[in-house]
Computed example of a mutant assay.
Amino acid sequence: MIGILTGSIIGLVLGKKVEIIKPLGDIFLNLLFTSVIPLIFFAIASSIANIEQMGKFGKVMGSMLLVFAFTTLLSAFLMILGVKLFPIVDNLNLTMAENPSGKIPTFGEQATQLLTTTDFYELLSRKSMLALIIFSILVGTATLKAGKAGEKFKDFINAGNEVFKWVISLIMKAAPIGLGTYFAYLIGVFGPELFGSYAHSLALYYCFCLIYFFVMFSFYAWIAGGNRAVKSYWSNNVLPSLTALGTCSSVATIPANMEAAENMGVSKSISDVTIPLGATLHKDGSSIGSVIKIGLVFAIFGKNLSGIDVVFTTLGVAVLTSIVEGGIPNGGYIGELFIVTAFRLPIEALSVLMVMATLIDPMATLLNATGDTVAAMMISRITEGKNWVNHKLTVDA
Score class of each variant (00 low, 15 high):
V18F: 10
V18H: 11
I21E: 09
L24E: 12
L29I: 09
L32P: 05
S35Y: 02
I37P: 00
P38A: 13
K56W: 13
K59I: 15
A69F: 10
A76F: 00
F77E: 07
F77A: 05
F86K: 14
L92N: 09
N93V: 10
K103M: 11
I104V: 15
P105S: 12
T106C: 10
T112C: 13
L115I: 15
T116V: 14
E122Y: 14
L138T: 13
A149M: 15
K152C: 11
K154R: 10
D155N: 15
N161W: 06
A175Y: 06
G180T: 01
Y185Q: 00
F190N: 10
L202V: 01
R228Q: 15
A229H: 02
N236W: 03
G246L: 08
T247W: 06
C248L: 11
V251W: 00
A261W: 01
M264D: 00
T274P: 05
A279K: 06
G289S: 09
I292G: 06
K293S: 11
K293D: 04
I294G: 03
I300A: 08
I300K: 09
F301W: 04
K303S: 08
T313K: 11
L315T: 04
A318K: 07
V324E: 00
G326Y: 06
G327I: 00
F338Q: 01
L345C: 01
L345I: 04
I347W: 05
L350W: 08
V352G: 02
M354K: 14
M354N: 12
L366E: 02
R381Q: 13
K386W: 06
K386A: 05
K392A: 08
T394A: 12
